[in-house]
Nucleic acid binder design. Structure first.
Length: 596
RNA sequence: GACCCCGUAGUUCAACGGAUAGAAUUGGAGUUUCCUAAACUUUAGAUGCAGGUUCGAUUCCUGCCGGGGUCACCA
């Protein structure tokens, strides 16, 4: 397919050769979109070129403009504003491109390049239900995976489940002591919520014990160490490590509850994984690697038996790799997990970790350690870091109950979608099932779009009352445009108009031209989003497309067109737009309804 | 204390070093005998401060101010 930007770059180089006898470096040629107040679609920036033309930027632009119009069939006109050469592409060229796009089913997506990557996201603790922060994480990771796939990568979606450690034992102890045999069934609760409940109970009772001990004269520190509950949890961890059958069975049962609950939530969220890793299966490998590192002199053992690695040469600190009792820490298991993944998928060229920005230091250290351990691939590991989601009430803290629960939030979104839809009363023909599906698509679309349109590095504010809207720059706005186009396509089919692009058309509407300019940029946007791991680029792009089409829709009446070729073009053109919107929204993990 | 990230309309977000800093929302004024008004048109409103580099700085560099984070034998 014709790549206008590349063609115009080549044409610019050609012009400089012909007019000024200069062989320019291609990197000097800047083609950018024309500002909408000027005529034209592509703009050549001439300021950096004037020293080669020996003319001022304005004269340079004029000379190149004349050359382009005379020597290329692509260019039908130009205008010069200061040092900017605004180029007008011939309508015939636009029509040819539109025709090509209409006939390219996978338009925008690259063919498989053979490159293989792994994307990790979610990776929750098993004793806390998923919350708003996890939603940003999951939507981001899933969307990046989709975008990388569209850009020609083979993608493996994975997560690491934190299924062992003292925190799990806390929930287990609390359940044993205070649970009275409660199960998700008997309590009529999701399993993850039930386990989360006991984690909170543990925390409350533990705090009470500490307070009691402090009252009895202990220091805070002593009290924290000596409280009976924490001792029980520590004993439980030891029993677990020795695989004491009763403890292990309890652990398995409660984990199973959590997994069932999570699975349910992931399903609602519309994300999935190709393979799950469990910390309980990777920490031993991490330990082995650390011991190997000690043997090879990369790490060292202190007198108390703890193992450390010295990263002062890299400008970092010394880092603990194994506790003095030989048990593994967070870093140990991440070392093991990374290595295991490359054993499972030897062909992956990159591992992408979707984890909050508070762990930047951790991943920096992890990648250095892996490199020191001799793993070549470590240099390609990437921490996809993102900022926290803030609430108007302040920070999210699970212990203080200021989290927004993922399940609850999604249910709220669906309810909002329902009431909004009922108000508008446009879905008379829908049965109950179809209506539910629509609410799901709209609610999730709003939520995903809201969380993804922001640049990941930024902290973002989430106001449950005000933030999620269905009007303006939102998911439902974009979904609405798609639904309207679908209505047009249905009507076209009824009256027997086939979408097609004839190059004999006389002219394009300006609003059509604006939309087409955006559509031809779709592959570049995917590339840009993939290179920057940035779904926000796709989100902002699809919004532009939807907005531009809305303008066309309000200005041009499609079915009043008497010329059959022009009518068929508008149908075809609309079809392209609908497809681009659908693909873009799918890259964000959102669906688009055909009616709403 | 050291290091990292972020400061743009009242609010929530945009802007490969490029033109008069875009949207949405809020407020004001309009549009429906015509394809879905969850839409469209119009109006009002912003780059934390001070330097520097550049033809050109929201963007790059330095300092300051403000917000957040990290530097655990927690994960």
């Amino acid at each position: 397919m014709l790549n206008l930007t590349e063609e115009l770059k080549a044409l610019s180089l050609q012009a400089f050769k012909a007019l000024f006898d200069q062989d320019l470096d291609e990197n000097l040629i800047q083609i950018q979109p024309t500002r909408k107040e000027f005529e034209g679609s592509h703009t050549l920036v001439c300021f950096p070129l004037s020293r080669f033309s020996k003319l001022n930027p304005e004269q340079t632009a004029g000379a190149v403009g004349v050359y382009m119009q005379e020597n290329s069939e692509l260019v039908s006109g130009y205008n010069v504003v200061k040092g900017f050469l605004n180029i007008v592409i011939a309508d015939k060229v636009w029509l040819k491109i539109a025709s090509d796009i209409l006939n390219t089913p996978n338009y925008g997506f690259k063919v498989a390049t053979g490159r293989e990557v792994m994307v990790e996201y979610s990776s929750p603790n098993t004793n806390k239900p998923l919350h708003l922060g996890h939603l940003r994480n999951n939507f981001l990771g899933y969307s990046v995976a989709q975008i990388l796939k569209a850009n020609g990568n083979k993608v493996h979606k994975v997560q690491i489940i934190n299924d062992r450690g003292i925190h799990i034992c806390k929930s287990m102890v609390a359940w044993q002591k205070f649970g009275e045999g409660e199960t998700p069934e008997s309590a009529n609760m999701k399993g993850d919520k039930l386990v989360g409940k006991y984690y909170v109970i543990f925390d409350q009772k533990y705090k009470a014990q500490i307070a009691g001990l402090v009252e009895a004269g202990k220091t805070q520190e002593e009290a924290e160490k000596e409280a009976p509950l924490i001792k029980e949890a520590q004993e439980m961890l030891l029993k677990w490590e020795q695989k004491e059958p009763e403890t292990y069975a309890l652990w398995e049962m409660m984990n199973e509850w959590v997994y069932k609950g999570f699975e349910n939530t992931y399903k609602t969220m519309g994300v999935d994984f190709d393979k799950l890793y469990y910390e309980s299966q990777t920490f031993s490998l991490g330990k082995e690697e650390v011991l190997r590192a000690v043997e090879e002199g990369l790490a060292y053992k202190k007198e108390d038996g703890s193992v450390w690695i010295d990263l002062t040469e890299e400008g970092l600190d010394e880092k603990l790799l194994l506790r003095k009792d030989g048990t593994s820490v967070y870093m140990t298991q991440d070392i093991g997990t990374a290595i295991l993944r490359y054993r499972d998928f030897p062909k992956i060229e990159q591992q992408i970790y979707t984890v909050g920005n508070e762990q930047e230091y951790h991943f920096k250290v992890l990648f250095i350690i892996l490199a020191k351990l001799g793993y070549e691939w470590a240099k390609n590991c990437y921490h996809l870091s993102y900022g926290m989601v803030d609430l108007p009430t302040g920070k999210m803290k699970s212990r203080e109950g200021t989290v927004v629960d993922a399940d609850d939030l999604m249910e709220d979104m669906f309810a909002t979608a329902k009431s909004r839809t009922d108000e508008l009363g446009k879905i008379d023909g829908f049965n109950a099932e179809e209506a539910e599906e629509l609410y799901r698509q709209l609610g999730l679309g709003a939520l995903k779009y809201y969380l993804l349109k922001v640049d990941p590095v930024k902290r973002m504010m989430f106001n449950p009352e005000e933030s999620i809207d269905f009007q303006g720059n939102t998911g439902p706005f974009i979904q609405y445009v798609h639904a309207r186009i679908c209505a047009i396509l249905r009507k076209a089919e009824q009256i027997g108009v086939k979408p097609s692009v004839s190059e004999n058309l006389n002219s394009l509407e300006p609003t059509e031209n604006n939309v087409l300019q955006l559509i031809i940029d779709f592959p570049n946007k995917i590339d840009e989003a993939a290179n920057g791991y940035a779904p926000s680029i796709i989100a902002n792009y699809v919004y532009e497309v939807a907005k531009a089409y809305n303008k066309f829709y309000s200005e041009v009446s499609i079915f009043n067109e008497s010329d059959q070729e022009a009518l068929a073009f508008r149908i075809g053109f609309s079809k392209i737009v609908a497809e681009t919107i659908e693909k873009s929204m799918n890259l964000l993990g959102a669906d688009v309804p055909e009616k709403m």
